[in-house]
Design a protein around this nucleic acid. Structure first.
Lengths: 236, 236
DNA sequence: AAGTGGTCTAGACCACAAT
DNA sequence: TTGTGGTCTAGACCACTTT
């Protein structure tokens, strides 16, 4: 079956892998009710603690559904999920072997326009720091960063000129850290993207929008527009 | 500090939350070297096992970096990561309260064109089942599914006509399950998208491409084109 | 009421990496 | 060599849900 044949100890990784095998190639089809942790631990020759960890992780991976008393069941349809690492743009560019360069395009303190007030949940008189900058890979424009920062929440930001490094690198250390909301979408290139990314009008642009929230109001909202052909890829 | 004041037992969740607090608001700034698990367990009044789980999870969340002997350190820049759940399209639509409808547009067995052979790593004579279908939400086209299935790997697929339900629902149970590769991108609307999603030419389309691999060859490749305005959102 | 998973504990050994 | 995290164990109590 899947048990150890030698005297080697069974690790939770071995158990996990065996369980996944049984679910995907083996006898445990969709909907199957698994034996209890105790029985499985006995069968695998490991402790219940180890079996628990294996089952918990397979469950987090989306293949199993666990409920007290009801037991552990193979999901009818595995939960599919994708995880993306989103490093600092500088790291992302340098990891491809390219040279990174940063350039500040615009920096201004303005009253938040109404669409932004709605989006960030700001009061009517709120002031924001608006920063537009560009990230290059090997001298070519790679990502356009369009950012708004809530000055009321982060007053120190006024003293940052962002001429040498982007707001991102400063923010990660200055932000009280909180809930982050991310969304991906395909948008037509706007005026800024046309100008700085060299897009033609209405070229599809891959956009990442990220908002960091502290309680009810956003600290910062950023819209990242990418050059033509950009894709986010991951393996599961 | 962060200890329990009453006689209540400390759970790993409490410990975890306290640790996150110390990192984000508290004394443990970027780069800080934490005390060892044993010392922390003593301070928090819990076992080392509990402390280990708390630290492990905070570490998986991207805030800490752990190395044997070197200890546990607060990352200079927290690893940002986003997790997306990607349910079956039917589930996704029904969860918004809308009515789901499926429609088959095209089903044909063809020799794989060269770009597809390259993309799926197929041999020159490979046959694929090409299925195009449409998923509706409340009667409106929501997602166009353009799928190729490697017949050599999944011969039974020939007997499926996919007239009532999409290939996806059949595949999740028939596939030997394996590594999945997902990518997101923004693409100009192609002819199919124009026709069935009602896009104008060159409308930006949010595309998800997903390939399931078994060893070296792909079992299936699918390209999902979404209606205008679609966005993928998540919280961290 | 009873059975399942969720978690905590104390103790142990090991693997890795810094010294 | 040594200190750290990685993991296993046996036993225990508890929380949730189904019966």
């Amino acid at each position: 079956m899947g048990q150890i044949s030698s005297s080697e100890r069974m690790t939770f990784r071995d158990v996990k892998q065996d369980i996944i095998q049984r679910i995907t190639n083996g006898p445990w089809g969709p909907g199957t009710l698994l034996p209890s942790e105790i029985d499985l631990a006995f069968e695998f020759g490991c402790s219940r603690t180890t079996m628990n960890r294996a089952l918990r992780e397979v469950s987090e991976q989306g293949l199993l559904e666990r409920k007290r008393k009801a037991g552990t069941r193979v999901r009818e349809f595995p939960l599919r999920q994708a995880r993306f690492a989103m490093p600092l743009i500088r790291t992302e560019i340098e990891q491809t072997g390219a040279t990174y360069r940063y350039s500040l395009l615009q920096r201004e303190i303005v009253a938040a326009p109404s669409w932004l007030r709605a989006r960030m949940n700001l009061s009517a008189e709120a002031l924001v720091l608006h920063v537009v900058s560009l990230h290059f890979a090997n001298g070519e424009a790679f990502q356009l960063e369009n950012r708004w920062i809530n000055i009321a929440e982060l007053p120190e930001v006024e003293h940052q000129d962002f001429s040498k490094t982007g707001p991102n690198e400063w923010l990660v250390s200055a932000m009280p850290y909180s809930e982050v909301e991310v969304s991906f979408s395909a948008e037509p290139a706007d005026a800024l993207a046309n100008t700085y990314l060299g897009h033609k009008t209405r070229t599809p642009v891959f956009c990442i929008e990220r908002a960091a929230w502290c309680q009810d109001t956003a600290i910062t909202l950023v819209r990242l527009s990418h050059r033509r052909g950009y894709r986010l890829t991951t393996r599961c």
